[in-house]
């Protein structure tokens, strides 16, 4: 499996504060990865470092096994939509398409036009007169027209209403599936990503907390519901590798656990976990982490 994107010990500091620290991850080609985390966790910083818009203070980034700095070859293969989809507000949509055609060697105007036609965006309108959602669509169309091998999207759905959000992600998935584009998109809205993404990166307070394929991660985590008891007892239960989150309500205890085998203890009802619950559980417990291979924190609580 070839690697689209790889970061090693990547870090970025603003003043004395590390916005991102010791970030090591790799993203296989063809994956659609969700980058989630609370505000200020370092999502935007990570995306900027990958896009080459920011320079790391530690570690390095390789995209398609090449360094980024002033590298037009890599630049041509990466599409990027920044947060809030910045556009030249005095340009018409058609102007922006011309801009893309002039500034890129590889450029698919027809693709962009078709995408924009599908969402009813007129080409002769200045982008300053479009709604926030329409601007997000234009920015995405511009990034897609580069026919990128790696598409980086920073909060692409934040300005869209729930219906548009779903359509946007569906359209995105549809087109990237055809080309085999690798996608990394950040979001703090987790619910929408479940259907769209097959890879997950959770950032928490400038650190990578969770990394892996969505299916594998969800398969190795379960929710246990049973009579109220102390967590210490659970650690011994066969199949439970770590307790990520516990909550007690009345006589009942609910646990989200990482498993290392089937759980047959009759004291527990075992349920599958949704992506949203999974992410929220990890975000609530910053000491927990699950990373492939030997990791800094270890794979247990």
């Amino acid at each position: 499996m070839s690697i689209a994107l790889e970061t090693t010990g990547l870090g970025k500091r603003y003043g004395r504060q590390w916005a991102l620290g010791d970030c090591t991850l790799s993203l296989p080609v063809g994956r659609v990865a969700a980058l989630v985390g609370p505000n200020g966790a370092g999502k935007t910083t990570l995306l900027h470092l990958i896009a080459g818009l920011a320079q790391p203070d530690a570690g390095h980034v390789r995209v398609f096994d090449q360094a980024l700095v002033n590298n037009t070859e890599v630049l041509a293969r990466v599409g990027f939509v920044a947060q809030d989809s910045p556009l030249y507000l005095d340009f018409t949509v058609a102007d922006l398409l011309t801009m893309g055609a002039r500034l890129n060697r590889r450029w698919d105007t027809d693709l962009a036009r078709a995408r924009l036609a599908r969402v009813d965006i007129p080409l002769d309108k200045p982008t300053g007169k479009l709604s926030g959602g329409q601007r997000a669509q234009v920015a995405l169309a511009l990034a897609m027209a580069k026919r990128p091998d790696l598409l980086l999207l920073d909060e692409p759905v934040a300005s869209l209403d729930p219906l548009a959000r779903r359509e946007f992600l569906q359209a995105l998935m549809g087109s990237v599936a055809e080309d085999g584009t690798t996608v990394l998109l950040s979001s703090h809205i987790v619910g929408d990503l479940e259907r769209a993404c097959d890879y997950l990166i959770v950032l928490h307070t400038a650190r990578v907390q969770v990394l892996g394929g969505v299916d594998e991660l969800l398969a190795s985590h379960k929710i246990l519901v049973g009579l109220r008891r102390e967590t210490a007892d659970v650690a011994g239960t066969a199949g439970v590798a770590a307790v990520v989150k516990q909550s007690h309500a009345g006589k009942q205890t609910t646990l989200l656990v990482r498993t290392d085998g089937p759980i047959h203890d009759p004291a527990w009802t075992v349920e599958d976990v949704s992506l949203e619950d999974f992410v929220l559980a990890y975000l609530a417990n910053s000491d927990a982490g699950t990373l492939p291979g030997p990791s800094r924190r270890g794979a247990s609580t």
């Binding site: 818009l53 002033n70 630049l75 920044a82 910045p86 507000l89 511009l142």
Partner: peptide
């Protein structure tokens, strides 16, 4: 100020 450098610097030309 408007963040459009993040649009134009991600096209196929270097900042330089």
């Amino acid at each position: 100020e408007h963040g459009t450098h993040r649009l134009v610097w991600m096209q196929g030309v270097t900042r330089r």
